[in-house]
Simulated scan of single mutants.
Amino acid sequence: MPLNFDKVCRLCMSQENMLFPLFKNEENLHQKVMDIIPDLLLRADDGLPRQVCSQCLQQVNSSYDFKQHCENTDTILRKLLLQMQVYNLF
């Protein structure tokens, strides 16, 4: 039974009526996926599905936001630590 790649989610293989483009430049969805899962090889011309389902779209955005939040927190904490170390030296 052949699979219609135009009706399949690239990330979970679900077949839904509502799919969203993975490679729409304004959304940067493919870049978010690659930031979260760098081992995935996503290219618009690789012949694989070019869309994602609503659940994967939500999970990608949520995961990306969490990743960004963690990175921002790490930056702030490291700056605070440095300030505390400098303050304790004098």
Rank of each mutant, 00 (worst) to 15 (best):
M1E: 01
P2S: 02
P2A: 04
L3R: 09
N4H: 10
N4I: 04
N4Q: 04
F5T: 03
D6V: 14
D6W: 12
K7C: 04
K7V: 06
V8E: 13
V8L: 15
C9H: 07
L11K: 03
C12G: 05
C12Q: 04
N17H: 09
M18S: 10
F20H: 04
F20E: 09
F20L: 15
P21N: 11
P21C: 05
L22K: 13
L22C: 04
L22S: 06
F23I: 10
F23M: 08
K24Y: 15
N25A: 15
E27I: 12
N28F: 00
Q31R: 05
Q31G: 00
K32M: 15
M34L: 09
M34V: 09
M34I: 07
M34R: 13
M34P: 08
D35T: 04
I36K: 02
I36F: 01
I36A: 07
I37R: 07
I37D: 12
D39C: 15
D39L: 15
L40G: 14
L40I: 11
L40Y: 15
L41P: 02
L41K: 07
L41M: 10
L42S: 15
R43N: 06
R43H: 10
R43A: 14
A44H: 07
A44K: 13
A44V: 05
D46Q: 08
G47E: 09
G47V: 09
P49S: 06
R50Y: 04
R50I: 00
R50L: 00
Q51N: 15
V52W: 00
V52I: 12
C53Y: 14
C53Q: 12
L57D: 04
Q58G: 00
Q58M: 05
Q59C: 02
Q59I: 00
N61R: 06
N61Y: 02
S62R: 09
S62A: 14
S62T: 14
S63Y: 02
S63M: 04
Y64F: 13
D65I: 08
F66H: 08
K67L: 15
K67Y: 10
Q68N: 11
Q68F: 00
Q68Y: 03
Q68E: 06
H69K: 05
H69M: 01
H69Q: 05
C70V: 05
E71I: 08
N72Y: 13
T73K: 12
D74H: 11
T75K: 09
T75N: 07
I76K: 07
I76L: 14
L77C: 03
R78D: 06
K79D: 05
K79V: 00
L80I: 14
L81N: 07
L81D: 06
L81H: 08
L81S: 12
L82A: 07
L82D: 03
Q83P: 00
M84W: 01
